[in-house]
Design a protein around this nucleic acid. Structure first.
Lengths: 181, 181
DNA sequence: TGTACATCAGTGAACGCGCGTTCACTGATGTAC
DNA sequence: TGTACATCAGTGAACGCGCGTTCACTGATGTAC
């Protein structure tokens, strides 16, 4: 049945919010359309009304989630502070609330162009946001330093999440954090 | 029909070789059992004779492929040299012949214990091999420096492969390479 | 060395399952008069 | 304001498809005698 425009917009945002979390937690391939819409209290058909396809939802969820992250990170004062915050056990253990690059970069190679474009915008958004924390050097120098730090940040979380050995995982975080401070 | 022991061992190694390539190129979820055995010129049943399950093959292919990588990397002289070699367009563009950590770390969170254990051995093998290139400091200091460098290496390749923008991809490599030199 | 037979690597049909998507339908909403 | 009706967000059954795995079978290999 039809719902009010306001209710439809609420439903849309709820699906986006749950999708952004689930994709980071389980990967795009790891969440089906039923799980995505059920998490928002609806049936899979609503996904097609609102987003056209699963891929469409993936692309929009990346954009939506990245905007929430940018809001949340507004208080950061320096790149080392941001990096230390990022390379943490809390971030490692909560992918659903964390960085899209760390959670989903590995899956991008098998995604369609729409999703990859959206992911690239996420990366550019992070680059712009983090490089703005640097005060010295040209724009290119600041961005290059940020890109290298981003590589360490992403690599540290990706590796720390991947290994089965808790002690090794901790050492990856500690050693990487020391490097970016 | 039955084949000679020698032929069976050849077939087994051929499947392992193709699987190690295909899993890095397309991910575990991205290659089916038919594609895996077809690449070795056989049918899917042979996978179950030799490895018991797809997961069994994944775990063994990681071990097999990592041994090949260790052989190939025997000539490296220093950690910065290894890192510069690793953070390259050639490595980015040839995942099937490249590092398992960069190709498969992102998928490990959704894999079973057998596969994760095998992947962790890959990481430990890389850590041991690379930290042996360092000459100064205690064992722990050498390993910590290596772990941080590994994070940058893996993050650089993972991000450079994920983004859709060739120019950004190149900048990620160049900036990260400069950091580890 | 030659014969009889058990072994087992590899085949190919079949299975149940979950996937993303389609589609006819529902019925409250929102609009035209 | 009240009535008639078109709209369309969301439902739920159904689809085709590819997946990993099972299993009865094949027939050359390898062994026991």
């Amino acid at each position: 049945m039809k719902v009010t425009k306001e209710k439809a917009a609420e439903n849309r945002e709820l699906i986006l919010k749950e999708a952004a979390r689930l994709f980071r937690e389980r990967g795009v391939a790891g969440v089906g359309v039923d799980a995505l819409t059920e998490a928002a209290g609806m049936t899979h058909g609503s996904l097609y009304s609102q987003f056209g396809s699963k891929n469409g939802l993936v692309a929009e969820a990346l954009t939506y989630g990245q905007a929430r992250i940018a809001e949340r990170a507004a208080g950061l004062k320096s790149l080392p502070e941001a990096a230390e915050n990022y390379i943490s056990a809390k971030h490692r253990d909560n992918p659903g609330e964390g960085c899209f690059m760390a959670a989903m970069a590995g899956e991008m190679r098998t995604q369609g162009p729409e999703v990859r474009r959206s992911f690239t915008e996420v990366a550019k958004s992070n680059l712009a946001r983090l490089s703005a924390l640097l005060m010295t050097g040209t724009k290119k120098q600041r961005e290059d330093e940020t890109l290298a730090t981003m590589a360490t940040m992403v690599g540290a979380i990706v590796l720390a999440r991947a290994v089965d050995d808790p002690e090794l995982s901790e050492r990856i975080l500690t050693a990487s954090r020391a490097k970016v401070s």
